[in-house]
Amino acid sequence: MLDPLLAANMNVTWWLLPLVVTVSLVYNATRYELPEKILQRSMKMAVAIIAFMGGALVFLFLLS
């Protein structure tokens, strides 16, 4: 079970990052076969998702 102290001090948003990485890798692995191409496209996709989510976060923060 998760350490309660760690859980209390950790923002849930950080749990998004591992998901972004795995989703990018698996999605692009189903699009291409070459490892270099998969890794290259995954990195672009992960950066794009994080940038988009970060932008949404900033937008919502400014609105609030």
């Binding site: 795995t22 989703v23 698996v26 999605y27 692995a29 189903t30 699009r31 291409y32 076969e33 070459l34 270099e36 191409k37 998969i38």
Partner: peptide, 18 residues
């Protein structure tokens, strides 16, 4: 995600070899 992987095993990569 495993659903995507199952389809990749059945049909191969969707866009091409790369």
């Amino acid at each position: 995600l495993n659903l995507l992987a199952i389809w990749d095993a059945f049909e191969g990569p969707a866009y091409g070899y790369g």
